[in-house]
Simulated assay, not measured.
Amino acid sequence: MRTAIASLGLLALAACSSAPPAAPPPPPPAASTAQQAVAVLASASGSRVSGKLTLAPMGDGVHISGEVGGLPANAQSGFHVHEKGDCSAVDATSAGAHFNPAASQHGRAGTATHHAGDMDNLVSDASGVAKVNMHLRGVTLGGGAANDIAGRAVIVHAAPDDYRTQPTGNAGARVACGVIKVTR
């Protein structure tokens, strides 16, 4: 009996030693290396929309503040980070698609499924000015991680984002574009 128990013990030890090693823990999330960036929005597609945004790392993402003018009065406009920091095309199509490093479906920021560059619509006042004060979660500013928005473009669209239509939210023409440039 003792021999049988000892044999079972040895088999159990052998089974444990042949198990694959535990997977290493995932790397810590990338951190922003920049302290601040600016995006100067210039008119696109023949619009008169322009503005200036300041971006700074904060908590689990990047805080964006500033002002956008030249919008229709009391209206909503789609607002996204796009994949390329290129505003050279007259219609800003050179900025590419919405910034989407995780290859997700388009949706509303803060929901389970959305592009990393999806943000809530801008809302203009009676003068056609939108005050921007929002937080873009899950992205970094500087450092070159897959979710880094430094060097990408911010786009203002002519129509509101419906948060459903794939892949753009049916937000219409690109009426302003600005490259996110690190300032410190």
Rank of each mutant, 00 (worst) to 15 (best):
Q35K: 15
T168K: 09
D148N: 07
T113V: 06
N121C: 08
L136Q: 07
V129C: 06
S77V: 02
A102D: 08
P29D: 05
G151L: 00
A116R: 12
V154W: 04
S50H: 14
A19H: 02
A171P: 10
K181A: 12
A23C: 10
T168Q: 15
P20K: 11
N147R: 13
R108P: 07
A112M: 14
G51S: 10
Q166P: 14
A109P: 12
R108H: 07
D60Q: 13
V68R: 01
S65Q: 13
A30I: 11
Q35F: 10
D161I: 00
A109N: 11
V38W: 03
E67F: 02
A34N: 11
D120H: 12
Q76D: 14
C177P: 05
V38Q: 13
Q76W: 08
P21E: 15
P27Y: 12
S47N: 04
A130C: 10
G78R: 02
C16D: 13
P24L: 08
Q166G: 14
V175A: 04
T54N: 08
C16K: 06
P29C: 00
A126P: 09
K181S: 10
G142V: 03
G117S: 06
I149V: 13
L141M: 09
N100H: 06
H115N: 06
A31F: 07
L41P: 06
A73L: 08
A158G: 03
P57E: 04
D86I: 10
G51L: 06
H98W: 00
D86K: 00
T183P: 10
L10H: 07
T113R: 00
S77L: 05
G117Q: 05
V90F: 12
S65Y: 00
P20M: 14
D125Q: 06
S124I: 00
T3H: 08
Q76E: 14
G110V: 04
T3L: 11
L13K: 05
R184G: 15
S17F: 10
N147A: 07
S32F: 02
A150C: 06
A171E: 05
N170D: 15
S7V: 11
G46M: 02
A42F: 02
S127M: 10
Q35H: 13
A159M: 14
S104F: 00
A42I: 08
S88C: 07
T140H: 02
N170M: 11
P29V: 00
A39I: 01
A102N: 02
G61R: 03
V154L: 04
A22L: 15
R2F: 07
A153C: 04
H114N: 03
P57A: 04
G110A: 01
P21Q: 12
A159L: 15
R164I: 11
P21K: 09
L8F: 09
A23H: 13
A112R: 09
V139T: 07
A22Y: 05
S77E: 03
